[in-house]
Amino acid sequence: MEKRAVFSHQVLPYLLLAPQIVVTLVFFIWPAFQALLQSVRQEDPFGLRVKWVGLDNFLFIFRNPDYFDSLMVTAIFSISVALLSLVVALYLAVQADRVIRLATGYKTLLIWPYAVAPAVAGVLWLFLFNPTLGIFAYLLSRFGYEWNHLLNGGEALLLVIIAASWKQISYNFLFFLAGLQAIPKSLIEASAMDGAGRVRRFWFIVFPLLSPITFFLIVVNIVYAFFDTFGIIHQVTAGGPAKATEILVYKVFYDGFVALDLGGSAAQSVVLMMIVIVLTVFQFRYIEKKVQY
């Protein structure tokens, strides 16, 4: 670690750290430890009997077709959200990077959905696609398509994907734009002089230079789709119809709070914890690379 002069107090540093550490221990580490403990036990819903079951809870969830379905839904959901919002954001950022006049204006108008809560983004799109009075549902019916996400699982999944992507575009846009503006103009001009057209310049010069940011954003978007979209799912579909939109986080909530399957819910929590740890490690490895880059 760095060498620098410091204060020499015996007690003060502990006092300064105390609030952060107490909150961390009581509300983070202790509950996480409880989840671990709970995941290897079986408890009846009234908490009267507890027995040690080893890895049974894990075996149970992995053998359970419901869990597998939820895993698939989560995979489709997060890949779609990441792809859709990254592609749209990159396309808009490339355009915005070219503009000289009004550049800040466009930026302001494109970034504010970041401030909209996922739960609110869900309501906005729920209203647009409401089968009886939504404007999009109406337009679709004019074209002969009867939209009803309350009955059709595919449509429900599409709806939450759209809502989740819509909210994430602004975040990706901001990072892509910063990345594009950091690319030296001389590089682009040199390749233009060598006769590379607009499309080639993008794919052979710009896109490779953006790859660290793209990689970072893929990780962030997957984390977002996995965890932060709970509000959208809860508000728009509540996991339905017939569990067609039940992503893993929603399933943990549902099994623990509504179905009161404590062991199963805890085992699912532990699996999610592993996923977060892997994603965090990925994110931090990338950061190290960025420093050299």
Partner: peptide
């Protein structure tokens, strides 16, 4: 210890 909180969002430790 503080670093670890990054890996423990509410969503993964709801019930406890």
């Amino acid at each position: 210890m503080i670093f670890i909180t990054l890996m423990l969002p509410v969503e993964v430790r709801i019930l406890p």
